[in-house]
Amino acid sequence: MRQNFNLDKFLILTGILTFPLFVILFWIVFPSIYPGYDIITTGISYLGGYESPIRTLVNVWGFGLWGVLTMMFGYGIFRSKLLSVFGKIAGIFLIIGGFMIYLVSLFQGPSKEGIYTLAGQLHNFFSNYPPIPISIAIFLFLFEFAINKKFRWLILPIIIFGPISLYLNYQRAFLSGEIPYFGILQRAALTLPFLLIMLIAILLYKSKKKEV
């Protein structure tokens, strides 16, 4: 058992898991066990908010685990021998993004609508800004893949999904006023970057396998 353990592969695997974890839990499982929750109109923050009956479950196994897995993947990228300095810097940004997602599990959404609280402000900050370090990381991967022949085909999905994801994240985080389909918009905005992360992780995992 000890002989077969490969830390790099283990850390890269966590990157593959972030996408299905988010999709299965935040699109399907959590909304279906929260009585009266409307996935179309309601953001994911309310699943782990103060008034949620499934708050602890969502914050530990949802936001907490999602953030921890992202940080682990970031560390895996950082220490990967397959990647150049661009990849390593991307790894640092992924760790920062993952840590911010983790902090959402500690600072839940505002409990009383419209009331100005420090917890609400912290929640807004940590939930609105993770896409920035994660986007920088994905942008850096473009340079990495431009010089790294093995991964060059990944440039195309990044060019296609990257701008869409940025636009959706801007809409979800910084657009004020009521958005009738906010729940779907927010989930789509968060799904796309993690789809890219999963693709990157799968390719790195496969390369690692060949190497071993």
């Binding site: 953001g43 923050s45 959404g109 505002p110 609508e113 419209g114 100005y116 609400g120 402000q121 929640h123 807004n124 609105n128 985080a173 910084f174 657009l175 004020s176 006023g177 009521e178």
Partner: peptide, 12 residues
């Protein structure tokens, strides 16, 4: 303010 604090329902 509302752009920076989108979850504040007063903004709606």
């Amino acid at each position: 303010y509302c752009r920076a604090n989108p979850s504040n329902r007063i903004c709606d």
